[in-house]
Design a protein around this nucleic acid. Structure first.
Length: 272
DNA sequence: AGTTGCACCTGGCTGC
DNA sequence: TGCAGCCAGGTGCAAC
């Protein structure tokens, strides 16, 4: 998308999770994309109109990118699949289609200058792959927190971008129980501990490995070029209920429990 | 203020 | 083969 001009936008229903903005297609058509970025799990597409297209994939959203030069759609221009909700066409002939069976994703348009104060972003925490994440940050964020570590790590207002899979994986690697109160891995005075420092490093490590592996293909996740991600083969606990704990020094079995309505996979033996 | 639970949807899988 | 029940990568919001 970056650098390309949007020639046409097809919006096939009035809403996803939220209603589309007024005149959505018209505000995008003819605009050039100046840059593409991300904040937490929100995709940010900057336009030369000073609007920003904010997109979120929810649980089941995906983009299909078809290049007129190499793809087949040149000959099947109008072929749309079930749950194809938005189609962007570009000056260079490429087409990007947003598909989302559950429609938990959304698209919004906001003025660039309004983003920092926008309700979606105002309370968003730090980027886990940025420079701010370290033991000291975790110490500050988790100090006096009674909520379980699982909930604290999923809380986007503390660290922005960790989802259910990567929280489970990070806690296993760190040897920390998802049920332990978050405040118990930091000192009363808010100074970092060995555990907090280690957890910060492990969070980075898990995310970097997952990105390098192209993400985790559960049912239908693909990279934008259609390739499958393969981080799911490196899961140590996620979706591995009943399997032996992969920690070679541990005789435990991976368990599944439910915390705040979400599945948590962990080993009760080596995660304390 | 901090937490929890529900709601939003469709589809895939399991077990009867 | 059909159908009910459960589960799924997320997060805004109402209710405690």
């Amino acid at each position: 998308m970056a650098g390309q001009r949007i020639t046409e936008v097809l919006q096939r229903r009035p809403d996803l999770r939220f209603p589309f903005p007024e005149n959505f297609a018209a505000r995008l058509s003819g605009r050039r994309v100046t840059s593409v970025g991300r904040r937490a799990k929100y995709l940010l597409v900057d336009l030369d109109s000073d609007d920003v297209l904010i997109m979120h994939l929810g649980m089941s959203g995906s983009f299909r990118i078809e290049d007129e030069v190499t793809g087949f759609f040149h000959h099947e221009r109008s072929k749309l699949a079930a749950h194809d909700h938005v189609v962007f066409r570009f000056e260079n002939g490429a087409r990007i289609t947003y598909n989302d069976p559950r429609r938990f994703g959304f698209m919004l348009l906001e003025r660039r200058a309004d983003l920092p104060a926008h309700p979606l972003f105002r309370h968003i925490g730090i980027e886990p792959l940025g420079n701010e994440l370290d033991g000291a940050l975790i110490a500050r964020a988790f100090r006096n927190k009674a909520a379980p570590l699982k909930a604290a790590l999923l809380d986007q207002s503390l660290i922005a971008g960790l989802g259910n899979i990567y929280v489970c994986e990070a806690l296993h690697r760190a040897g920390l129980s998802p049920r332990r109160a978050a405040g118990t891995i930091v000192r009363q005075d808010g100074k970092p501990t060995v555990r907090a420092n280690a957890l910060a490093g492990i969070i980075r490590e898990v995310l970097q490995e997952a990105v390098e592996a192209g993400g985790s293909s559960l049912r239908d996740h693909r990279q934008t070029d259609g390739a499958l991600g393969y981080f799911q083969h490196r899961f140590r606990v996620y979706d591995r209920e009943g399997e032996h704990c992969p920690n070679p020094k541990c005789n435990g079995v991976v368990r599944r429990i439910v915390q705040s309505g979400r599945s948590t996979f962990f080993c009760g033996e080596c995660q304390r």
